[in-house]
Amino acid sequence: MEENAQYLYITDRGFKALVKGLLKERRVYGTVRKDGFPAFKEISGAEEIELVQTPTHLSAKEFLFPQREVLLKFDIKDNTHEAVVEAGDQAIIGLHPCDIRAIGLMDRVFSCGAQDVNYLARRGRTILIGSDCMPDRYCFCKSLGDTDVDSGFDIFLHRLKTGFIARTGTEVGADLIRKFAGPRMPSPRELTELEGLRTRREGSFTATLEAPPEALPGIYAMSDESPVWERIGSICYGCGSCNNVCPTCYCFDVRDEVRANLNDGERVRTWDGCTLDDFARVSGGHDFRKTRAARLKHRFNRKFRYLSGRFDSLFCVGCGRCSRACLVRINIAEVTNELIRESYKK
């Protein structure tokens, strides 16, 4: 480990003091076990946090891009609009490397071209604290490049038997550690323990893609006519769960909600999903993606091909959430592997 300077040791008490310090100045969301399942939740005390190593079922995107968000307030009688930006200081604790990469992609989406002030203001006031994970049978981030992140977070915590190795990714993160957590340089033994954790994690991936990430846009481009789409389309419910749980699905609907007084109301945006029935229907009833097969093809292509030119990155981080959530067990890694195998035959 060359860059020891980045690595600091903090004790369990130091971690608790950090959370306590954050709670004094901002809302804090952390990972907990909810009905036995890992989840992000607003917390009010450090003891509530459990740095769960398996991925949360829902991603953390709702804290930056809420499921329902007010964009405008209007008054019909006075004929006025007012822009609304709902942003407060907050911190998210327990983000895994895939979550952090996903937030980096969301940052690109909402800052590219027109600046989405609603997202960017909230993001600008959010502290990101990562923690390490262990893959389950759905995780395949390793096949998409890096299993770890070295930027995109303020602090990243590696849990040791006692205490943590903390990496800082920003000045803000470094300041927080200094101010609250009482850091010291890690001992060689602690660094060796970290190295061991990393090696164990690297060896724990079971789901893998059978082609390198650079090849995926090309493979998807060859797969427009693949029979795979019809097959998975015929079992898909079109329920949109895959869109909901995905940390990089950002499509939204906008609609007006009027109060009971029939005068004031709000223009709100809500999550939408490209697998849902009417997503691409236009007036007159013409639907540009009528079948579930067409809609799944669209969703998968967005992750591996359509957006890669626009944002210079694949849009799947390999978290496996969509596969975990799918009621009919459509598995994005397995589907991708099928397409890869078909393309080798061509």
């Binding site: 405008l72 600046q115 960017l120 600008g124 906008v254």
Partner: peptide, 16 residues
Amino acid sequence: MSLYANPTKSSPPSPY
């Protein structure tokens, strides 16, 4: 990329 830590002072007007 720019993030707005203080939406009232540094952010451009809402595109919505």
